[in-house]
Simulated scan of single mutants.
Amino acid sequence: MNLSISLTVNGVRRNIELEDPRVTLLDLLRERLHLTGTKKGCDRGQCGACTVLVDGRRINSCLALAVSHDGAEVLTIEGITGGDELHPVQAAFIAHDGFQCGFCTPGQIMSAIGLIQEGQAGDDPERIREAMSGNLCRCGAYSGITDALLDVQKNLVEADQRRSA
């Protein structure tokens, strides 16, 4: 029995035939749509390497059945830039050494973008660490990740203040 679903992935509408209703969003992205930036780490929702934004919210795509997100808008690491310019979170990760081996980086960046969009980042390092605790880094780049988010958040606040002035 085939199921048809429709997703908007990185701004592009995709109509997809699923042969198996148990296909996860992660496997659909990686194996069917060839968007391999989203990583399969633990495959149990514990590491955050598979984090994507669905309708603007952070989710572990390894735990999400693709069929349950029919009609959703999905944003992956491949869809966050507009051309050759890095997303501000990507640039901040580079500037603050927010990665080492890079395996967890796509999930970390997607989680950071979601955190900022949710208005949960703030300027408190402990709050950021807590909100990002679902994303594990085996290399221990947590300090750089936190500094990167603090920098992006500060720049957003300053930009808002300039617009208001």
Rank of each mutant, 00 (worst) to 15 (best):
L136E: 03
S143F: 15
L149H: 00
R127N: 12
C139T: 10
R138G: 02
Y142I: 05
D123K: 01
S133C: 14
D124A: 07
L150T: 00
G122V: 03
G140D: 09
E118R: 08
E130H: 15
R129F: 11
E118D: 09
E130N: 08
L115W: 07
D151R: 06
L149C: 00
S143Q: 14
L136C: 03
M132Q: 04
A131W: 05
T146I: 12
L150E: 01
D124Q: 06
D151Y: 13
G119W: 13
S133P: 03
L136V: 10
G122C: 04
G122T: 06
R129P: 01
P125N: 07
G122K: 09
G144S: 12
L149M: 10
D123L: 12
D123C: 07
A141R: 04
P125Q: 06
A131T: 01
E130D: 09
A121M: 02
G122Y: 14
I116Y: 08
L150G: 00
G122M: 11
Q117S: 07
D123P: 00
M132W: 12
A121P: 02
I116K: 06
I116T: 05
D124V: 05
C137K: 10
S143H: 15
G144C: 09
E118A: 15
G122R: 09
C139E: 04
R127F: 06
E118M: 11
G119N: 00
P125Y: 02
L115K: 01
D124N: 12
R127G: 06
S143G: 10
N135I: 06
R129S: 14
M132E: 06
D151G: 00
R138V: 03
Y142F: 15
I116P: 06
E126K: 06
I128L: 05
S133D: 13
I116R: 05
N135H: 14
D124I: 04
A148P: 03
S143N: 14
I145V: 07
